[in-house]
Design a protein around this nucleic acid. Structure first.
Lengths: 317, 317
DNA sequence: TTGTAAGCGTTATCAA
DNA sequence: TTGATAACGCTTACAA
């Protein structure tokens, strides 16, 4: 179009303080500029950080974010997702763990032809873009670090059954033990739901075992904080009598001693994922041949005061 | 209409898996079934809990929730809010602190005729429904409790300047001191931004004062957790040499010792606020004469291990 | 009680 | 390059 016309229109729009109406746009066109963020009972801290990242990218790109809880695993999910798509007409969906590994949700999305991106998926299929970090390697590295300190009786607190990324952390833990030819004593593995309370309960249980673990590695920070509280309650000295390691770096600094943890770039992952989703939206139809991008972000082990060499003389009996 | 017809329609809707399209509805009708949650740099934990409550109510009532950051205080807010309203056509807006006390935001909302509700407002005007708790009294009560333990040198860490509710907590603190005829020593008041780091910094500064405070009351939990960490770092024994009190009960259990705090029913407040907003939407136009409802929810002081009588022999010099 | 038609603010298509 | 016009899927008002 002619630059002069363009100028005139822009000027008029500015003068009238015009902004396009999302509903009308969505109704008429192929795009709604609406993204949905699906989550299922996550750690609140994790969710909040994901949202910050997603929202930041949405703002940059002129999208809006709809937040939706999603009971993954119940029979009605497919219906619920389908209903969300029809009603809200979102252009794309951001899947956070553990929804990111739900075959039912992915199937519903694909069937409806709605683009989506997965944050921290742990399993195939990789038919949509994904942003993750190497949870397996991070679990391995943290365990190797504990081993390097001299620990041999290391317990693990797993995350929710459906949480794939948490399972990978456990796999890495097991692999590191195996590589060091260290057997995992019976009863040294507990399972929690990522909450502080679960960490406390599992911590109390693990610390009553004999021989007692000299280190406990929890699949997320909230649970690691619970373990620290459990140790305090039982009068177990940290880090002399027990080392504690966490994962996420969402709550690890709050405790005393502060928890050694794996720093996960949650906000950056969410931002990158949202960017990938929007990019996919823009190239819809074309270049369907290339496989969807998979971004792998770096993690970092943050060494804090909760880990130290085992004292040796511990409560072994 | 005839029950038979009604049945037929409902049956058909069920069979076709029909759900109404939000955009079309919004475009054609007076309602969009969209609510916006506005926030400005809050404590992440607080925000997450507000969202849980708001989302729960939205689900119940068939509404959707749009989450929007909002830089309150910058010159462009009015424009930004107006743009949000025009573009998204939200039916109503939920204002969280400190946005709930922004005259510019409220004016923009009223001018556009969009309903809103305020969570934890601290100031007039009360032209819209509001849900709050008595921050002043809670601050007073907590201070009275510290005084009852025998503390006389109590320091306070204030929240962000714009955060009205946090100011009320401080007012209550001052009133309780005044009622006990205790002077607030110079330099015993610090200000933080509600973050753990701010609490740590303020805590370090306050603990280096002489005479040293025997108790520190922080305007929220994150900062109180920072104070606990600062005390650990300086080797100040908790609670023997220092009592710490927080506010919110969002992070108070995580530390060691766990923090005595004011439990704020955040999720319940958000749920109630969302309910009030939706109710206002339904009775729009009628009964404009009655003043907007103001709900006051109860708080509770949670006594934990971070507070105890002062040891007396402290580092007074 | 039921059916019909106009319009909501855009996008997309087609003539001019 | 530009202007006109038909959807999009509902709500609302009015006619049958």
């Amino acid at each position: 179009m002619r630059p002069a016309t363009r100028q005139r229109v822009l000027a008029a729009a500015g003068a009238l303080d015009y902004s396009p109406n999302i509903s009308a746009r969505s109704l008429a066109g192929a795009r709604s500029y609406l993204l949905a963020l699906l989550y299922d009972d996550p750690s609140l801290n994790y969710l909040a950080q994901v949202q910050i990242g997603a929202l930041a990218k949405c703002r940059e790109e002129g999208f809006y974010l709809l937040v939706e809880p999603c009971r993954r695993g119940v029979p009605g999910v497919t219906r619920a997702v389908r209903s969300l798509l029809v009603r809200s007409r979102v252009d794309g969906v951001i899947l956070t763990p553990p929804v990111c590994d739900s075959p039912a949700v992915m199937a519903a999305l694909e069937e409806a032809g709605v683009a989506y991106v997965r944050i921290a998926p742990a399993r195939a299929p990789y038919r949509a873009p994904a942003v993750a970090m190497d949870d397996y390697q991070a679990g391995y590295d943290m365990t190797a670090y504990l081993l390097s300190l001299g620990h041999r009786r290391i317990a693990f607190i797993k995350g929710p059954r459906a949480h794939g990324a948490a399972s990978r952390r456990y796999d890495g833990f097991c692999a590191a033990l195996a590589a060091a030819q260290i057997a995992l004593p019976a009863g040294f593995v507990a399972r929690g739901d990522f909450s502080f309370d679960a960490g406390m309960d599992c911590g109390l249980a693990l610390l009553r075992r004999r021989p007692r673990p000299s280190a406990i590695f929890a699949a997320n920070d909230d649970m690691a904080a619970g373990v620290v509280a459990a140790a305090h309650r039982l009068g177990v000295a940290l880090p002399e009598a027990l080392s504690v390691a966490g994962f996420d770096d969402t709550a690890a600094r709050l405790t005393w001693p502060a928890i050694t943890t794996v720093r996960q770039p949650i906000t950056a992952m969410a931002k990158a994922a949202t960017g990938l989703l929007i990019a996919a939206l823009r190239t819809r139809g074309r270049e369907e041949k290339s496989p969807p991008p998979r971004l792998m972000l770096d993690y970092e082990i943050i060494h804090r005061a909760s880990t130290a060499p085992p004292s040796g003389g511990g409560n072994d009996g």
